[in-house]
Write a protein that binds this DNA or RNA. Structure first.
Lengths: 221, 221
DNA sequence: ACCTGAACACCGTTCAAGT
DNA sequence: ACCTGAACACCGTTCAAGT
């Protein structure tokens, strides 16, 4: 039983409508679609770290075929998210016409929060790829970042947001709040924390200089 | 090469100084200590998801012995963190005497941020256990939560923090900022986000009602 | 009472063989 | 050109056999 995510756009059938639609052989195209559908179902049921073997099995496709189409998990995830990414970007341009800049921004951040929590564990994958560019998953990052930046700058121009706030911080705030939502049982915690950050981005009162010192540990490869 | 974490207390030798120190056979005790030492090294080098096999190998101990002493990864993690947890709690009682309540709180949150980033990936493990109680890793959670709550209430009593702020939200804010620090390359991002949240917790101006709707996905078991 | 390590289950990834 | 699935490497966990 897969419940539907609030931010899911009416699944208009799997469609590789990316900018790079080179022609595929008929069977390859069919397998691509089967994989997208199976992946969406598996990610929905098990989270962003669902078994790739299982996805291939659901799609009635050899595991090698999955790897041929999507050399990495992130590539598959990116493909599945394509529609949602496009929807978020479109929503941003809509909201640029909202009467209140800050409210328009808030609405968009709400939509973005829904998008990055489409699958359990997705926030983490997205945030990580957002940091280390050139990852396949970050294919839509620039578009989303640009869309968000436009809304942020509009709110800043209207004096409804501090001028020195980095638009990327605002987007990161949504990810952080979404992450909290995955960790805690309190369904309102993400909203409270995001609201607090937005107040902090708006008000000019000097915050106490609380620094957190993240550790730069060596990766395990 | 393992770098030293800023918040690491001078490693005064591995010591199971927990409240439940039932006597162990000499060899068992020795293995316990070897495992703690090896685990700390492995977690430092590879993060909180270091290979348990590798830890047992480093300790010159069978993998079964590791599981006998620490039935779960979280149990091992909790044991390794014991010293740090005690230090954080002690620091809180110290800071209850700080001249400025809000500054004392800020200093403590700084220390807490260091603690939860002792190993890469630790923030996530801690935050998750913080939500779902009774986990072994959350052995020190109550103590830390209580210590933080005292500092929060002191700041609230002094009017330096909004009265309706949940102390757990403040602690969660530190975790969220620490998580951001693990995702991004920008070393100042966690400090900026935490500062913003603290301003939001202090100021009374109604924030735009930006809600993020977390998804309650079914676990994979 | 405690230790050991083989055995099992599982997953990701590659690649030689097929069509 | 694309598909398949066996093969490999790796990891977590258990448990029968040992001391």
């Amino acid at each position: 039983m897969t419940r539907t995510h609030p931010s899911r756009v009416a699944a208009s059938g799997p469609a590789p409508t990316g900018p790079d639609v080179r022609p595929l052989r008929a069977d390859a195209r069919r397998n691509y679609d089967l994989l997208i559908t199976a992946a969406d179902a598996a990610f929905t049921e098990f989270g962003a770290d669902a078994s790739l073997d299982d996805i291939a099995r659901r799609a009635n496709v050899g595991i090698g075929t999955l790897y041929r189409h999507f050399p990495t998990r992130d590539a598959l995830l990116a493909a599945v998210l394509d529609e949602g990414t496009a929807a978020i970007v479109a929503r941003a341009t809509e909201l640029l016409d909202a009467p209140s800049p800050s409210l328009g921004l808030a609405r968009w951040l709400e939509a973005l929060g829904g998008h990055v929590t489409m699958y359990r564990g997705l926030t983490e994958a997205l945030a990580a790829s957002y940091a280390t560019k050139d990852e396949p998953l970050c294919r839509g990052c620039d578009a989303i970042a640009a869309a968000g930046a436009a809304l942020v700058r509009r709110a800043q121009a209207a004096g409804e947001l501090r001028a020195d706030v980095d638009p990327r911080d605002v987007i990161m705030a949504v990810h952080a709040a979404a992450w909290v939502g995955e960790q805690t049982k309190d369904p309102d915690a993400p909203a409270r924390l995001l609201a607090a950050m937005l107040v902090g981005f708006r008000d000019d009162s000097g915050a106490p200089a609380a620094k957190s010192r993240p550790r730069r540990a060596r990766g395990r490869t």
